[in-house]
Simulated assay, not measured.
Amino acid sequence: MPLDQIHEQLHLRHPKRSFVQYRLDKPGFITPIGHHLSTAMRYTCLIRSISCAGAMLSINKTLTLPENFYLEIHGIRDEIPCTEFKRDGDELAVRFNMFLDTDFLNHVLGRETETHGA
């Protein structure tokens, strides 16, 4: 799986970081970054799995995307800057331009985070 390839490369540089891949199967949106950082178009996708470093997406195989774009997970307003890593038909492996925070990843996965000092 291409997401494992991303993790192998990053684990060498960040050996203490966890690169656990979680099954998500949630709808999302891809917003290409155009000329002068414009974001006029928006495309739907299915986010198959996610980790702190990247995600596997299902997209329309005829869709042409730039190398860099934003990923938005349905129901979460934050956009995640991404770079295409590998594409095979309707499967697209993306690398996040920065690691996702553990709390944000738990929020995406629908997990409750512990509150300290309550």
Rank of each mutant, 00 (worst) to 15 (best):
R48Q: 00
A55S: 05
Y22C: 02
L57G: 05
L12N: 08
L65I: 07
D25S: 10
T83N: 10
T102D: 04
N60Q: 10
A40C: 11
T62F: 13
R13P: 00
S51D: 00
E67L: 15
K61I: 07
F85R: 11
G75I: 05
A55P: 00
C45E: 01
V94H: 04
D88T: 15
T115Q: 14
N68Q: 15
F29Y: 11
E67M: 15
T39H: 11
G34S: 09
H35C: 11
S38I: 10
H36E: 09
L37A: 14
E84F: 11
L37G: 13
I47T: 03
S38W: 08
L105R: 01
Q5L: 15
V108Y: 02
L105M: 03
R77C: 07
N60D: 13
G54W: 01
Y43P: 06
T64Q: 14
D90H: 13
L109S: 02
P2H: 13
Y70R: 09
A118M: 14
V108P: 00
E84P: 10
R111K: 10
I30L: 09
I73T: 01
I80F: 05
T62S: 15
P15V: 07
Y43G: 06
L57A: 01
E114V: 15
R111V: 03
L24Q: 00
R23Q: 01
D78P: 02
P66D: 09
D25I: 03
L12R: 13
N106F: 04
G117F: 12
Q21E: 02
R95T: 03
M56R: 06
R95I: 02
M56T: 03
G54K: 06
G75S: 04
G110I: 03
L37D: 12
D25L: 10
L57Y: 01
G75E: 01
L12E: 08
I33T: 07
L24W: 05
L37C: 14
M41Q: 13
E8W: 11
H7C: 08
S18Y: 03
P66E: 09
C45D: 02
F104W: 01
H74L: 09
R17V: 05
F96E: 00
F29P: 05
E91N: 12
G117H: 14
L65K: 11
G28Y: 06
F29W: 10
G28K: 04
F104T: 02
G89W: 07
G34W: 10
F69V: 05
S49D: 05
T113Y: 07
C45Y: 02
T64G: 12
I50S: 04
I59C: 04
E114I: 15
T31F: 12
F69L: 10
L65Q: 07
E72L: 13
N106H: 07
L109N: 00
H14D: 04
F85W: 14
E72R: 15
I80E: 00
L92H: 00
T31C: 12
N106A: 07
P81Q: 11
F29V: 06
L71T: 00
T113W: 09
G110F: 01
E8L: 14
K61W: 06
F69C: 08
